[in-house]
Design a protein around this nucleic acid. Sequence first.
RNA 1: GCCGGGGUAGGGUAGCGGUUAUCCUGUAGCCCUGUGGAGGCUACGAUCUGGGUUCGAUUCUCAGUCCCGGCCCCA
Length: 410
Amino acid sequence: MKISKPRGTRDFLPEETTRRRHVENIMRQVVNNWGYHEIITPTFEKLDLFTLKSGEGVVGELYNFMDKGNREMTLRPELTAPVMRMYVNGLQANPRPLKLFYFENCFRYERPQKGRYREFWQFGVEVIGSKLTDADAEIIALASEMIRAVGIQGDLHVGHLGIIRHVLRDLGSEEQTKIMRLVDKKDDSGLEDYLEEIHASAEIRRNVLELICLSGEDAVLKARQIIGDIEELDHFEELLTLLAAYGVNYNIDFGIARGLDYYTGMVFEIYAEGLGAQNQVCGGGSYQLIQLFGGGDVPSTGFGLGFDRIMEICKIEPDRAVNAVVIATDETRTDAIRVATAMRETIPVYLDIMKRNFKAQLSYANNMNADFAVIVGKREVEAGQVTLKDMHSGEQTQLTLEEAIRQITL
RNA sequence: GCCGGGGUAGGGUAGCGGUUAUCCUGUAGCCCUGUGGAGGCUACGAUCUGGGUUCGAUUCUCAGUCCCGGCCCCA
């Protein structure tokens, strides 16, 4: 009976796994250099953690289950909530700000499509304990750097929820949410229709529509003309100054709404070409979740990178490690094991475990694209040496094992 | 949850009512038991699942399932 893999999951074959680890390691290098520390949270959590954060509606998109003690559990659909839970449970007394990152798989029960799987990997970063613009700027700069480091041309959009919320402040919260949703979708005609429908004042209507299409150098100036000198615009302007200092290219976009209510100020998204309908590779912002999970009034800012989408468009290839195959005959098999064991202290070595004849071993070395063959035959054993064969040129010489290793690692 | 396009050896494919189910590639082995890549030969290996129509279904039909793309959603 042949068993297929569950829908929306993937097997990563050796070549692809090597690529993924290579890209992962580059991104780890970046966050390490920025002074962030890795954390690991459970693969499954209590269901409440996510319904508390995102509402009962998310259950439809979760891999939830009842455990044998009748507790409602779910595979994690994201990592921001677990990290905040972890903070409340065990990190509240640590010096702030905390600079954390994670790289883990998440699970969502959704219809798979390009760049969307039921098991997917998120590389995320969170700063806990600073509400300053400096933290926001660092987070955006770090996200940009990670994207850049893996060779992707990203399109960064930065906005600030406080600004559009200021415009909408006189409307009911339900209406605000609906408007934010339409704004996020860039559904301008839908937005106009809805503003009409709720009889929003001419001023609100005009301000919203003008605000969301502002862009370019003088966007902040124009925003001031529309809504006046509010504190949020000062913060936003400062953020842009810091981003410029980091050398980050950005597009101002007051139309980013990022769904849910816990985002408090800065929001950003990074898009990339070549991904079909799911073109967002990174999203983040500043938020307030810790109180929701029973902690204090601690602000955070962070982002999540869609690792699978990055892999989809990332072109970088790992350098292939130089490798060798040790080739033996029947009577020198144990000598070959000793040679391979010694060599493995420095380089990857393949050794025949199929009792193949000499020729077949060499053929295997060729098929697997080995750089060197190290021949350990009767003649070599008697001479206390090995024969090193360069598989690319075909040249070979008999020398001591130490010399052979030195040549290979040159 | 909805819409469209697809499922034939491990990968890529041909056949479209009756075939020994085609070819390429792959893997294993032999020609050739101390020298690889070529060639020849041999072996391995497939009609997504279940109903229906039919004397007979890989082919037609329905349902399911999985894959691909899109909608909804996107924390």
